[in-house]
Nucleic acid binder design. Structure first.
Length: 502
RNA sequence: GGUCCUGUGGCCGAGUGGCUAGGCAGAGCUCUGCAAAAGCUUCUACAGCGGUUCGAAUCCGCUCGGGACCUCCA
């Protein structure tokens, strides 16, 4: 089975086929850098990092565009409208661009911690004001936007009538019916500038106190919320590209508006496959600013938030996210994170052990046919699971099924020749491919340097002598005190000793 | 109120109508001087009530609960 993905646009799983064979264009909505990223933000960036890595693994040449929104959105509609970034800048007594730089740097730091690959292009909204203005001018020229008091609004109703006939009705992505929307919406204040409630801003006139402002054909102002993505995706990926990604909460109105804007300019829906990750919840509720329940990434790693009983490493968080399918909600709790931490360690230890095995002997026939068959079945199912809408949870479950096999071979509970060399090599290959290449997991425990190793080897030898003399008081003292210092000694079955920094 | 999603064992979570996912925790056992680690075994759940079916966690209906979007949001 080839790769299938769930396309929000068609509401079904579809075989993935790129527009240009061998090449994929992918656009993912990036962060608004008016504040520090939180756990909820981590999910799309990790999810689409997996998509990126997997497509590359499949041999595609991928152009991955992920924007930085640094121009600011409306905090509230209408008269009281404020730009998030300029408001925050005043509070922190910073230049807007200084503030944006600060949070962009923090965002990049978090992405590196998560071991996310860098996108091919990371365009900023402020760097594409001209492109946005050009696009808005075209929409006005075609009659789908109107200017009021230095602001420009998109005429959703006219768009819907004209483009609905061409199969691009407003609501096509989110499954909303415009007519029903109109009936159910309540009266909002400060809607006087818009012809209709559902119209959205392409360009917003800036009040004098606004700090972020640009000259435009309609006066001084700043771009509307949705136009940057349309402008930048068109510029770097073309009028039609393969994948558009983002969180489910962006499906409406953000992506819906993007489709409308791009459709007017390019006469087509900009992306073929629309992929949306689900939310991370905390006590069953979405993590978000409006709920005041966010855990910032720096707090999460350090364990400094009041909801945290400890810190969780970036790889633990990454693994935690991968253990769930990306379209399911994922509920945060200390218990769940701790389970992920332990699970990851167990899996990673087995993986490390697997890589230490010497698989040079040439077993053509398996010593244990049942086990051989069982392992082979699991190994060959991994790609199927990944191709089934990126089911990372099932791939991980499959890898976990092999952990006892690896550990048993290590401890001599299963004979070294139980499996054929071909299966052993396949196991090694699959573990490396999935854990390292596709899932982007990496060792993050402190590396024990050479000097420390020498010291520990000496101590282990002394302890071994003590044990040989049945001087368990001394041997236990060594082990217990090292444990207090964060070094765990483990007596191996073969009489050797291993240690682990914890 | 409208649109949509969802309800799985102590916790987290996968599940294409039939073949006990997986992780964490718990219990027992094995190995071990004792631990740790590891292995084996165990805990066999699908909100409730109906219906379809030879067979339903999976399909349909109703009831109850939870959530998302409709407004900034990953």
């Amino acid at each position: 089975m080839a790769l299938q993905v769930y396309n929000s646009l068609t509401r079904q799983k579809e075989a993935f086929q790129s527009i240009i064979p061998g090449k994929v264009g992918m656009y993912v909505c990036g962060p608004t850098v008016s504040g520090e990223s939180h756990l909820g933000h981590a999910r799309p960036f990790i999810t689409f990092d997996i998509v990126y890595r997997y497509l590359k693994h499949l041999g595609y040449s991928v152009r991955y565009v992920r924007n930085i929104t640094d121009a600011g959105h409306f905090e509230e509609e209408g008269r009281e409208s404020e730009d998030k970034i300029s408001k925050k800048a005043v509070l922190e007594k910073m230049e807007p661009m200084e503030l944006v730089q600060k949070y962009t740097n923090l965002f990049h730091w978090a992405m590196r911690e998560f071991n996310n690959l860098e996108p091919s292009i990371e365009p900023t909204a402020t760097g594409h004001i001209v492109e946005q203005i050009v696009m808005i001018e075209k929409i006005i020229a075609d009659g789908y936007a109107y200017v009021v008091n230095g602001s420009v609004y998109f005429d959703v109703d006219k768009y819907h009538r004209d483009f609905g006939a061409k199969g691009m009705q407003y609501g096509i992505l989110s499954g909303r019916v415009l007519e029903e929307q109109l009936e159910t919406t309540r009266e909002l204040e400060s809607q006087d500038e818009k012809r209709n409630k559902q119209d959205f801003a392409l360009w917003k006139n800036a009040a004098p106190e606004h700090i972020m402002r640009w000259q435009s054909p309609w006066g001084i102002g700043f771009p509307g919320w949705h136009i940057e993505c349309s402008a930048m995706s068109t510029k770097y990926l073309g009028e039609e590209f393969d994948i558009h990604g983002g969180g489910m909460d962006l499906q409406f109105p953000h992506h819906e508006c993007e489709i409308a804007q791009s459709a007017v300019c390019n006469h087509r829906i900009p992306a073929r496959y629309w992929l949306h990750n689900n939310m991370i919840t905390i006590n069953g509720r979405k993590m978000g600013k409006s709920y005041n329940n966010v855990i910032k990434l720096s707090e999460l790693f350090a364990g400094t938030h009041e909801l945290l009983t400890q810190g969780y490493s970036p790889m633990t968080v990454r693994f935690f996210i991968l253990q769930t399918h990306y379209r399911s909600t994922l509920d945060f709790s200390n218990e769940a994170l701790q389970a992920a931490e332990k699970g990851l360690r167990r899996l990673w230890d087995a993986f490390t052990q697997l890589n230490k095995f010497d698989i040079s002997n040439n077993n053509i026939t398996a010593g244990d046919l049942d086990l051989e068959a069982q392992c082979y079945t699991v190994l060959s199912s991994l790609d199927e699971h990944m191709n089934d809408d990126l089911n990372t949870a099932r791939v991980l479950a499959g890898l976990f099924e092999l952990v006892p096999v690896i550990n048993s071979i290590k401890d001599g509970l299963v004979a070294k020749n139980a499996l054929t060399t071909a299966t052993m090599l396949m196991m090694k290959e699959k573990f490396n491919t999935y854990l390292v290449d596709i899932f982007g997991l990496r060792e993050e425990r402190k590396q024990d340097d050479q000097k420390l190793s020498a010291v520990l080897q000496l101590i282990a030898d002394i302890r071994k002598d003590a044990r040989a003399k049945k001087d368990f008081a001394t041997s236990d003292k060594i082990r217990n005190q090292l444990l207090e210092a964060g070094i765990q000694l483990k007596d191996e079955k073969d009489g050797g000793v291993s240690w682990e920094l914890i």
